[in-house]
Design a protein around this nucleic acid. Structure first.
Ligand SMILES: [Zn+2]
Ligand SMILES: [Zn+2]
Ligand SMILES: [Zn+2]
Ligand SMILES: [Zn+2]
Lengths: 146, 146
DNA sequence: ATACAGTCTACAGCGACTGTAGAGGCAAGC
DNA sequence: GCTTGCCTCTACAGTCGCTGTAGACTGTAT
């Protein structure tokens, strides 16, 4: 039950120290106790919470959603419909992105295979970037990070 | 051969005015001529260049790469190997991302299908985010925008 | 003449961190 | 006790690729 410093927490949850402090600053992690000299002190609950955040981030959930999920965890008897909705939205976002990226893959594939070396002036890759009309997916959607 | 204002260029290339000025500020678009009153004036070459940038961005190329591509266009007799390398790197990045997202899709799918409603305390979605060990792709790679 | 649309600069903000500077803290070996 | 070397602290700037805003000026149509 000894409290751990931020460095130990960082290793325990595999999250960088600066990121932990950032999560604290934006309210994802609560404000921890401090030692006499002002160092942050954490317990095993903090490891769990931080690991939860990390996994949620790895799954691509935005921080606002993670805040909601953590808030819901403190009300365990409430309905999980909100949780499920958040996860389904995320799944939808992932699928949409998969579609976009698959289209990009096809187009880039076509480009690189049609380049047979030579001068820039006659390069098919350049031509393909220049000429959007050749493009299979006529209008790409704006690329946003997941 | 009449020069066009930034608004016309914006419509011609389907790029927002603020974005055009941003591209100018970071050196993707050159510094255009100005009217007596200081308004930017563009010609058809600018439409081509801006459209090129737009399509490259839609394909996910980072701005540094686009800078390189534009630079290469001004040396049409140089070897297109660099161009091809940039495109192949991009294709690799897209494929890597596709793999990551496919793993995310599977995991999210499993999560949402195993939730049967009820209280948050017994929600499988929550449990899955909490328990990373259940996870098929044991360690997800850090999610970075393409 | 008046209305309205377009353009100008300069700067702040987004998300989710990462990196830096410069200061102070802590444990182990000598 | 002292040095060595890592650990932690705060505060702030930078990343990428834009987007939005404020407040002033310009251009065009009726
Ligand atoms: Zn080529
Ligand atoms: Zn295309
Ligand atoms: Zn549930
Ligand atoms: Zn997982």
């Amino acid at each position: 039950m000894k409290p751990m410093t931020i460095g130990r927490l960082s290793k325990a949850a595999n999250v960088k120290i600066t990121t932990i402090r950032y999560y604290e600053s934006v309210g994802l992690m609560g404000t921890p106790d401090r030692s006499e000299s002002g160092q942050r002190l954490y317990g095993s609950l903090d490891v769990e919470r931080l690991s939860f955040i990390r996994h949620a981030r790895e799954l691509g959930f935005p921080m606002d959603d993670i805040r909601t999920l953590i808030e819901l965890q403190t009300h365990p008897s409430s309905d999980c419909a909100v949780v499920n909705k958040i996860a389904q939205n995320q799944l939808g976002a992932v699928r949409k992105r998969l579609g976009q990226l698959a289209a990009l893959e096809r187009e880039l594939e076509r480009m690189v295979t049609s380049c047979e070396g030579g001068k820039v002036a006659s390069c098919q890759v350049m031509a393909s970037i220049n000429d959007h009309t050749e493009c299979s997916s006529k209008d790409h959607e704006r690329i946003k990070p997941l």
